[in-house]
Design a protein around this nucleic acid. Structure first.
Lengths: 154, 154
DNA sequence: ACTTATTCAATTGTACTCAATTAAATTTTA
DNA sequence: TAAAATTTAATTGAGTACAATTGAATAAGT
């Protein structure tokens, strides 16, 4: 059984180093540009981008350990500990250790944290409606990215 | 002429806030995860990820102003000034103002900067060959991302 | 020419992001 | 059960990102 021909077999050093051929660079730019677009919508809510996606995760499921939250968001304690402390200070959530296993920190939304969800629903709507990228391509792109993340995760 | 039905017309607040429906989150995770994958390849070269893409841009075209380099990389002076100073300290490039317009800082690669290109060509090859994501999808993904970046830029 | 506006890089301050280390709690193993 | 290994969060330090401000140089307007 033959291996399929790979692009790598024929591409020159010069071409393989071109910025526009790098998946990493396309992801890097896209990610930073889209995060910038969120700022005007998030500022009035008092949320940073990282705070925003953390709240999205918690609105889906709170009363979770920091570890499982970190796995969902692909963030570690170095990022999450200070971020969650800030969100706690803002009154959106509570961090607590429980006697069953004192190592874990459980994150639970407060009433205020739950209530913020209503005001936040306009955020993705604003983003999508101000975008000139068509819905079909957006859905296709999200699907491809999920497949990519699954492949890179292992 | 009727407008096409938009997903936004029917989707619930709950669904539109789901993490897995957010393009921004898929981009955010993909970008950070792929950058992490580069670290083992870049460490031996003494390059950070940002230093790496900066060198890619300069290997395509050096003797450019910081401004035009920043536009290519979507980075501003707050990020580039300290980064370029570090790359200059490492002997990879030179930063200089010219009498024709003292506002601009021109970036030029040194001999050492040019020579690093040879050793770097293995980096994207290592990444691609260690990836379980197929080439066809990768190319498709890059194309979609370029279209997306073009659309978000304006 | 002179004033005003613009451009560009540098600086400052805030907020991540992550690798590596530390310390406490729990689990596993001998 | 006592020692060793593992798990979990917190901490530390380096390196970005980026908005906002500053200051110098140049361009535009009068």
């Amino acid at each position: 059984m033959k291996n399929k021909d790979s692009i790598l077999d024929h591409i020159s050093d010069n071409d393989i180093l071109k910025l526009d051929n790098q998946l990493c660079f396309a992801l890097y730019v896209s990610s930073r540009e889209i995060i910038k677009k969120y700022k005007p919508s998030l500022d009035p809510l008092g949320l940073t981008y990282t705070g925003y996606i953390t709240m999205l995760a918690l609105w889906e499921k709170d009363n979770v350990t920091m570890k499982s939250l970190g796995e969902k968001l692909h963030l570690d304690s170095g990022t999450l500990t200070p971020l969650l402390k800030k969100l706690e200070t803002k009154g959106l959530l509570v961090r607590e250790r429980r006697s069953e296993d004192e190592r874990n920190v459980y994150i639970t939304l407060t009433k205020q944290g739950h209530e913020l969800k209503k005001d936040t629903a306009i955020v993705p709507r604003q983003l999508i409606s101000s975008s000139s990228f068509d819905e079909e391509s957006t859905i296709e792109l999200i699907k491809l990215l999920h497949r990519y993340i699954t492949s890179i995760d292992k």
